[in-house]
Write a protein that binds this DNA or RNA. Structure first.
Lengths: 267, 267
DNA sequence: AAGTGGTCTAGACCACCCG
DNA sequence: GGGTGGTCTAGACCACTTT
């Protein structure tokens, strides 16, 4: 407090003003401030954060408090620390681990990015499930339907609902602007960065439409993966359901999810 | 160091001597020491840990260092902290969240514990997958085969491989000693506590044997869940595969697992 | 009132990486 | 050598829970 009186150290341009309720713990406010900057795309993946000591000086708080905030952000995979180098906004690796959970890979067993065909893109009525997940107040959303194709057949049908406010720019995008990797496209075109995913898997009988598009028999089984994707603050920004032939399904659950309350049961 | 000279404060009986390599960070050694005590069953779920200040005094280290160690153990769900009360060994809730991932629940939609029938229990040849996962040096394991039954039919077949050293006591157990909940039985009979689970899911065509036991047609689809269960130190103590009718399958993946490297890919 | 964990401070020294 | 994050110290004060 005494040091503030000198008025010498203003908050540098690259360190945002502290956000969040003053009743929250200091380290939490730092967390929220930084998560906000990342979620808003003002700090982009790969960007270097200011040094811990600089942040502490800028906010006039103890270095240990800054450290605790950064620890928490690192735990949540929003940032990455590299000893001796610095701290950086994390770049989620959703792309390269592609298709990890399919039995069916390339001929050589390697992962690859399947062909992607946009079947529909526009404003559409939004069903209750995505509407609730996305927190929409009106039953309208940007709808993107894609076929994922490999080995000469449609292997996957994706129906993707997006909040219109964040994704309006997608409607004006040309098909080749989008490309096969959607999350990088979200970032490029709409400034939305996905940091977190929740999924629910089920095995169902194929609907007649799905069966036709996937070239299955009516009554064959399909897997269904419902996904909610979230930004750095935890806000839901995408809801999708993917369906494909159940026989090609494979999935890994990492230890992290097995223990927390949110996980699953034991039998 | 100066304080040690007085020789007044010996390490109390309930605080174990510090373990782990002296080259490790102090907080890591505290972590490993406590994890060891929990894994060995010397500290059991529900037990109260000593107060942070007492631990710090006993090891002659700063309270902040102890705090960091406990933070890490709490992150890994080995302990639970309750403000104003104390810190306790965590009791994994593998039981009550039972059957979370099945479409099929009780008539009223509530979770329940299905009937359990031990089909086989003894020493058996151990296939390569469980042998490797469990780190066995000889191809022998305790094998437990169970049928899980509800609504008047066998819904699930479980083949469970256990390391003989830890689970020898299970061979002498009477059937009703084991009961429907296996992990509590491990703790009761063998002193083994499960803290972590990894699973891999696939959809397969039923083998003739599985089809017969599950009353499916040959060629019908089954889900297969391969699980590795680990103790507090991360050592694998159980390998199992569960199979059942694919049509009844449902699974949730919590956000925690979606982000870390171990998780899965995106399509 | 006493004891617990939760937050925060204000440093110190080290290991690591870069130019 | 100079800057970064990693570890550790030795406290202070607060919020919460039990007796």
């Amino acid at each position: 407090m005494s040091r503030r009186a000198s008025g010498v150290e203003a908050v540098p341009i690259d360190i945002p003003a502290l956000m969040g309720s003053p009743y929250l713990p200091l380290y939490r406010r730092v967390c929220e401030t930084f998560a906000r900057m990342i979620a808003d795309g003002r700090w982009r993946p790969g960007d270097a954060l200011p040094a811990e000591t600089d942040i502490a000086r800028a906010y006039n708080i103890a270095p240990g408090t800054v450290r605790r905030a950064l620890d928490e952000l690192a735990d949540n995979r929003l940032i990455e620390r590299r000893q001796g180098i610095g701290t950086f906004v994390h770049r989620p690796n959703f792309d390269n681990a592609m298709l990890r959970f399919f039995r069916f890979r390339g001929v050589d067993g390697a992962a690859f990015v399947p062909e992607s065909r946009v079947v529909a893109l526009g404003i559409a009525a939004c069903p209750p499930a995505p509407m609730e997940a996305l927190g929409l107040t009106e039953p309208q959303a940007v709808l993107l339907v894609r076929h994922r194709i490999w080995d000469g057949a449609v292997r996957l049908i994706e129906r993707i609902y997006l909040p219109p406010r964040r994704f309006a720019a997608l409607l004006d995008a040309k098909p080749d602007e989008i490309g096969p990797l959607l999350y990088p496209a979200y970032e490029r075109i709409c400034g939305q960065v996905v940091f977190q995913i929740e999924e629910e898997i089920a095995i169902l009988e194929a609907s007649p439409e799905d069966a036709a598009e996937l070239q299955l028999q009516s009554g064959d089984l399909v897997f269904s993966i419902e996904r909610v994707a979230r930004d750095a603050t935890g806000a839901a920004i995408e809801w999708r359901v993917s369906r494909g032939d159940a026989r090609r399904f494979r999935y890994q659950v990492s230890p992290a999810s097995a223990v927390p309350g949110g996980g699953h049961g034991t039998i």
